[in-house]
Design a protein around this nucleic acid. Sequence first.
DNA 1: CTAAGTGTTGAGTAT
DNA 2: TATACTCAACACTTA
Length: 571
Amino acid sequence: METISKKFTIYWFRKCQRIHDNKGLLDSSIQKNLLPIFILDPWFIKSDKTGTNRIKFLLESLSDLNANLKTYNSNLIILYGNPSDIFEKLAKHSENLYFELDTEPYALDRDRKVQKICEKEGVQVHRNAGHTLLKLADLAQAGESCKNMGDFLQFIKESMIDKPLEKPDDLPSLPADYEKILKSLKIEYSNQVPSLSEIDRNENEATASLKGGETEALNIMNDYLKDKKKVNNFSKPFTSPNSLKPSTTTLSPYLKFGCLSPRLFYHNLKKVMDRNATQPPVSLVGQLFWREFFYSKSYTVKNFDKMVGNPICKQMNWERNEEIIRKWEMGQTGFPAIDAVMNQLRQEGWMHHLGRHLVACFLTRGHLYQHWEAGRDVFDKYLLDADYALNNANWMWLSCSSFFSQYWKVYSPISFFQKTDKNGDFIRKYVPQLKHYPAEFIYEPHKAPIMVQKRCKCIIGEDYPLPIIDYKKEGAINMQRMKQVFADSKDQSIKEEKKSISVTPKKGKVVKEESKSNTKTIKDFMSDKNQVKKAAEEWALGEDQNIQNDKKAIHSNQNLSSKSRKKSLKQ
DNA sequence: CTAAGTGTTGAGTAT
DNA sequence: TATACTCAACACTTA
């Protein structure tokens, strides 16, 4: 019987790298023998798909978490290995497992395996959702019923967004014999967060300025909220993509790792904003709603990260020219604005949203006509805030594959940045070879007379590349290609409609209605509550049963918790 | 049924 | 320096 009392309660940190608004941590804090862990999964840390800057951000975030846990006389334990392998060993010595749900396909699969292993050993698995504003059932319904942001804004209601939870008052200290047990199980562990070099990363590649961690996240947020005017007037399209100091909050990496709770940010924004504040989708709350909308789509759309087999993605004949893609990645296109943004990406792991637009449009439909998946992979490698839902959604948006279809609106690699940075200071910073160029030539340095190039100590074609394409020519060609793609897919959909009618000519009308009901609008959903329920059930049937059970459990779980919170508020 | 309006963030030119 | 118009014209909703 003595062994039973020694069993662990595990809180498994993954994306929810914070003390505040963390339901699982709060719940686990009343258990005995609490072991807070983070697993350094080779899938993430050893993958050449993950850049060093993001690893650096993660380690900083974990160090901050560890420091916070130490103020409770607890400690973060780092485990090394594949989560399934670890839980195969650890489950026998555990009583409870707490973690926050993650809707990414990799995570859903990983967690399903871990849960199976744990349940076999009689471990109680407690899952909570705190990575999005909405509860998972609402998120799923939004994903099913909302085609665009307009739909989503009608769908989301303030009452759906729970208030953030306080951090725990106390945490139990570590189980006395945890080291002995981990050793006997042959689980590689450390009670310190490793350095980059300890996990075989080159420290010289860690060049990003943003520092990970909950403390940093709260500081940045609180600083930003102090300027009420700035918060109230925030309008995304009018923020500058190429100011030397970021014109937006830079909170995205903190939301990605869960250093900051989106619900805390949301409710804090609400406190600061007044009646005259800008509104979604352009306001700061709007930015959280974009995140939410894309999460809802990524949760419900199959093959969201691919063109083929993705029902919302336009099928196009993209090219994959490795040489062109690598030049774009490494800032070697000969277009200073493009190269500056790509250099900023590799150096800082962060770019302004519109900088991302510029280079993504250029790579895909605008000029180079390369596959959006190739660009997505490059962003996924270098971005601190790389996020399955947002990255894929935005690449589909910019390439006119989904959500957006006005393909004739193309960003100019020359003039778009000139509007907000005539002198080219941003270029001078991120393409330093060009720093002596006069403003007149800085966006098109190959046009500078050779005398000017010599004087500026940067010969184009030697010290900085010539433009890899004639952008006006290629832009015109691509415009025609896009026109053709859209015309073809229009033909296709008309053909399909005719086909479906001709199969059942007498029931043409019925067929039409049926096809309409397949693409339910938000209004249909809102107008009839039973229909909402029915649709949710229909959706549930088509889903993997395991995931579905997750969602149901979470929904009822959260309902309960919000009720009990209200109760405790009354008392 | 048609026309007009809307969609987070276009460019180039004229006034 | 700011605003309006034109370019060429998708997908979808509303009047």
